[in-house]
Design a protein around this nucleic acid. Structure first.
Lengths: 204, 204
DNA sequence: CATTGTAAAACGAACGCTCGTTCTTGACTG
DNA sequence: CAGTCAAGAACGAGCGTTCGTTTTACAATG
């Protein structure tokens, strides 16, 4: 009741974001575990008490960053799956690779995403979040495959679920090589995909 | 005088392996960072001093496990690339997926590999090791692609480097879905690949 | 074959330090 | 002056590692 000495909501939100930004920089630089709360606090230019007002624990901070890292890619994938007219597979992949390529550098989300993957193996809540999200991603690619099939780009008896999984898998396959093993650039990778698509039928 | 008290080399090697096994279990259960030396020591049923006789630091233990996790896959990939007669691409992928599938469970190497990936982003020495090894893996798939091309399985103007990168990328693409997002089984995934290979030419 | 000398191997208490978190304090706001 | 917010000292737990000591294994000895 009564006296309500308040700071504007924007101020509170800005403070929170200030902490999140600092945490992201620290986590990117040193990883979740090697980053101490003191690191984040110093990076944010705040005090211990201030940070603990906005986040009740380090774990909450890690979780917040992890979720923000993974969110946002879905927008792109949604576009790929719903574009009119339906995108040819190679073009859809081209866009996806260009998008993720921009996130493979030290300022992109993928170095953090790799850490999230590792973390999710030991944090069931995070694992659930990741599984849900990535299954959603895959579903986008399944839609993409189904529409490509309707457009005659795939054999009539192809399983869109299977093709979608492969298409989706091409993305982390590209990213991992890029981040860990100096993989080829998106254009070269795409050329490889094209060559496979143009391959001669196969079957043993 | 001249006492030469010795313990057999096998004993020493066995002790070392005993520690490595314990460390692997701990790291798999809790991750590199959340595992304390005390955890490893208790798991191994040894004393602090004993463990530090064999490994001079926690970091050395982590590095040893990380390297052992990544080693060994190359044998399989080498076989794929050098088999006579040259393997059809789908069959080679089939073998690769079956091999990695066996390693995706909680007792396989992949949950640990994901941690190694994360760790390598912040440990230059490990990053170098990983990059070298994975580039080697990719090279195997490039050979595979080149031979498939010679067998007429790929267009004559295809770039084996690009195709090899894509083929290699299919593997982690599969693994990540399997480990993080309840991805499809190897057979379904392979069906997807087959459908793509049988696709209708494409180009815009 | 018992005894002894000795170095390797194992032990585990203790150390210094950093961690994540809590608590006390005071300044500032409405 | 009531109440919020930030500051930062303080805390206990747990970390990785060190190190002085004890135990073990075994060749040399008598």
């Amino acid at each position: 009741m009564c006296a309500v000495p308040r700071v504007s909501d924007e101020h509170l939100a800005a403070r929170r974001q200030q902490i999140l930004d600092a945490a992201r920089r620290c986590f990117l630089r040193n990883g979740f575990h090697a980053t101490s709360m003191q690191d984040v606090i110093s990076e944010a230019g705040l005090s211990v008490g201030a940070v603990y007002r906005y986040f009740s624990s380090k774990h909450e901070l890690v979780t917040s960053i992890a979720q923000s890292v993974l969110d946002g890619a879905d927008d792109l994938f949604a576009d790929l799956a719903t574009a009119e007219p339906p995108l040819p597979l190679v073009e859809a992949l081209d866009r996806a690779l260009q998008f993720v390529e921009a996130q493979t550098g030290p300022d992109g989300v993928f170095p953090l995403a790799v850490q999230v993957w590792a973390e999710s193996l030991r944090d069931p809540a995070l694992a659930d979040f990741v599984a849900r999200l990535y299954s959603g991603f895959r579903a986008r690619f399944v839609v993409l495959a189904r529409r490509a099939q309707q457009a005659g780009e795939l054999p009539a008896d192809a399983d869109p679920e299977a093709v979608g999984a492969v298409l989706f898998g091409l993305v982390p396959g590209f990213v991992l090589q890029r981040v860990l093993a100096a993989g080829p650039d998106p254009k070269t990778y795409l050329d490889g995909v094209r060559a496979l698509l143009a391959s001669h039928g196969v079957e043993k």
